[in-house]
């Protein structure tokens, strides 16, 4: 009797956090890809081209069907998670680091530094992000590293804005003034006194940006500007699927569902964090 109540609470807590579990499951799938993918994602089999889900050939089952080169969709989906997740994580980290550094410097140092840095932020924000990403990829060329660099270049101003506003709000608080009066260097004040107090809203931004980065990476790959073939990526699978939408619906459907679920869970977690930590704007 006594254990019944807590247990049901625990169960409902597990259920309400399903986005987190989904994210965790996808991450696990990405890491364990070589062990759980049923087939080699790059192995072509021209005898098994464009087969519907459940097709079997020589002992291999194509659970989610095969693409135009006879590659297993499920395996490519699992390997594609690696690209989506690693690009998203790395670009969020990189843009977050740069943006937070710039925003905190502008908010703490004020004066000319503030004017120049925040103007720069405004300029970056006035170019639609995907266009900025496209023109930069057009210059640098596609590929895994370049996509991360481009996404970081495009998105750091978001973090800078938030870090700037938060730093401004906190820089005049007594504990900061005290630390400065005691002779702490600006770097020390920023890292030990200000950063811990503004990290919450920044985490919210990072979560929401994570979903966006997944979409951006898929979008660039869809346009042929992302990670290059034969590496499996959800965006490029969708691009193939677009061409075969009349004859092989499964090629575009499954990577789309995977993308949708990943982005949805990131957005849901972000929304929860907004409720808990406060707005990240």
């Amino acid at each position: 009797m006594e254990t019944a109540a807590p247990r049901s609470i625990r169960l409902s807590a597990l259920l309400t956090w399903w986005p987190a579990w989904l994210l965790l499951a996808l991450t696990a799938a990405a890491i364990l890809a070589p062990w759980i993918a049923p087939l080699d994602p790059d192995r072509q089999n021209l005898l098994a081209r464009l087969k519907a889900p459940g097709f079997e050939a020589r002992g291999a089952t194509y659970w989610l069907g095969s693409d135009e080169l006879g590659r297993d969709i499920l395996s490519r989906l699992i390997y594609g998670a690696r690209v989506s997740l690693s690009v998203a994580v790395l670009s969020v980290l990189l843009s977050g680091l740069v943006g937070v550094a710039v925003g905190m410097a502008a908010g703490y140092l004020r004066g000319w530094t503030e004017t120049i840095l925040m103007r720069l932020v405004d300029i970056f924000l006035s170019i639609p992000a995907i266009l900025l990403a496209i023109i930069t990829v057009a210059v640098l060329g596609p590929g895994f590293v370049n996509v991360i660099l481009v996404l970081a270049l495009t998105r750091w101003p978001r973090y800078a804005r938030v870090a700037y506003g938060q730093t401004l709000a906190i820089a005049d608080r007594p504990f900061v003034t005290l630390a400065r009066a005691m002779g702490a260097s600006p770097l020390r004040v920023l890292a030990l006194h200000i950063l811990p107090n503004i990290i919450g809203p920044l985490l919210v931004v990072a979560t929401l940006e994570f979903g966006l980065m997944v979409l951006f990476e898929a979008g660039l790959s869809f346009l042929g500007l992302g990670v290059q073939p034969p590496t499996a990526s959800w965006g490029s699978m969708l691009s193939t699927g677009r061409n075969y939408v009349g004859s092989a619906w499964w090629i575009a459907t499954f990577p789309g569902i995977a993308l949708f679920l990943l982005v949805l869970s990131a957005n849901l977690i972000g929304d929860r964090l907004v409720d808990r930590i406060g707005k990240g704007r």
């Binding site: 979903g211 979409l215 898929a218 979008g219 869809f222 965006g235 969708l238 691009s239 699927g241 677009r242 939408v245 009349g246 619906w249 575009a252 459907t253 990577p255 789309g256 993308l259 949708f260 982005v263 949805l264 990131a266 957005n267 849901l268 929304d271």
Partner: peptide, 22 residues
């Protein structure tokens, strides 16, 4: 609304083509 927000544009486009076009 959240679903609309998380839907990749290219995917919703392809799915519409599949259902209403094909």
């Amino acid at each position: 609304v959240l679903a609309c927000q998380s839907m990749p544009t290219f995917w919703s486009g392809i799915m519409m083509i599949l259902v209403f076009g094909v």
